[in-house]
Each structure stands twice: as structure tokens, then as C-alpha cells.
Amino acid sequence: MAFLRGEGVEVCSKQVGFVGSYYAATVINNYGNESYAVQYKNLVTEDKSHPLIEIVSADEVRPLPPKVSASGFALLDVVDAFDNDGWWVGKVSGRQGFDYFVFFDTYGVEIPYPTSRLRPHFEWVNGKWVSKKRV
């Protein structure tokens, strides 16, 4: 799938410590559908003076997932949790009050989040969004 300049996307990080996280960005240049220059919405340069711009491989870029409002989640639902300026894939492992506990297999940690920082998880498969509600 080709993305055009100005299009909103998410970029999957392959950096150690950030594997499996997705960051909102805007395409600022297309290099023959093999790579893209993107400007991140929430990531900034080291001196924090400008939004971070990177050239990323086409296989690291996907369209923005569908916006689905969720009023709650069930045990073992696969969710994306907004943390450290990006979306991280985990599964609901419990609930206490207004917070849902999300377990992240990749890092072996469980963290509580309010519903406002969670979204249902979708996978981009063969050019279509597929819901991954449960494991």
C-alpha cells in the first residue's frame, strides 16, 4: 500500500526496548514505496525543539487504525495502551476501580490504565484491519 504526502499513519518501532509499539506520524515524503519520510506527532528531537522526522522502511508503516470507541474491556481482550508517546499492544489482565491492568508479554510487566488511554487492538493484514479482541 502506498501512502501519500500529508497522510496520517502509524509507524511500528523496531528499536530495542520499543518493539511492538506504534507511533502516530504524517508522511512528508514517499521514496518509491520502499521507504517514507515521516514526522511524528508525539516524538520530538533530542533537544525537544522540533517534531522528530525519520526515514522509515515501508514495512514499518501502516494506515491509522479505525477509531472505535469502547466503554470497557473484558479479561484477556487485546488492547493498545497509550504510553511513552505511542501505542503498545497488551492484554487486559484485570480491573480495579476505573483502571484496567494491561499485561505486556514482550516485557513481562503489568500496568494500570484508565479507559481513556486504551483502544481495541487491530492488526493490518493483507490490506485490511482485523480485530484481535481476544488471545
Rank of each mutant, 00 (worst) to 15 (best):
T106L: 15
S69F: 08
Q96R: 05
S21K: 10
S71Y: 03
E7Y: 06
A25K: 02
W87L: 11
K133W: 01
Y31C: 01
N33P: 03
F103C: 00
N126G: 02
V79Y: 08
C12F: 05
G127I: 13
Y36M: 02
W88N: 04
G127D: 07
G90E: 04
F101V: 04
L118R: 08
K41E: 09
T115I: 15
G97C: 09
A81C: 05
R5K: 11
P112H: 07
K132A: 12
T106R: 15
S131K: 10
N42L: 12
H50T: 08
I111V: 11
S21G: 12
F18D: 04
V78A: 14
F104A: 06
V78R: 10
I53T: 15
F3K: 00
K14S: 14
N29C: 05
Y107H: 14
A81W: 04
K132D: 08
G20E: 10
A74M: 13
E34W: 01
D59P: 03
W129A: 07
P114N: 09
E46D: 15
E54W: 09
F104Q: 02
I55G: 05
E54A: 02
P112W: 00
F122T: 09
N33T: 07
S57H: 13
N84M: 14
G6D: 06
V9K: 03
G8V: 06
R134Q: 14
R62P: 01
Y22L: 13
V130N: 12
V78W: 07
E123L: 12
D85M: 11
T115A: 14
H121N: 11
G108P: 06
R117W: 07
L4N: 11
N126C: 13
V125M: 13
S35K: 11
G6Q: 08
V56E: 10
F104K: 05
G97A: 11
D47G: 06
E46L: 13
V78C: 15
E46H: 07
K48W: 02
S57E: 14
K48A: 12
S116P: 05
Y40L: 13
G90S: 10
S93L: 02
D59S: 13
Y31A: 08
V27A: 05
D83M: 11
Y23M: 13
L64V: 12
K41N: 00
R117I: 01
L118S: 03
L43C: 10
I28P: 01
F122E: 06
V44G: 03
P51V: 00
F122Q: 06
R62C: 08
W124P: 03
G20P: 05
G108C: 12
I53Y: 01
T106G: 09
I28D: 00
F103S: 03
E110T: 02
D83K: 08
W87F: 09
P66C: 12
T26N: 11
S69V: 11
E54N: 15
D99P: 04
N126M: 06
F103N: 09
Y40H: 09
T115G: 03
L118E: 06
W129M: 10
F122G: 03
V9E: 04
V44F: 14
S93M: 01
S69P: 01
R62Y: 02
G72Y: 09
D83P: 05
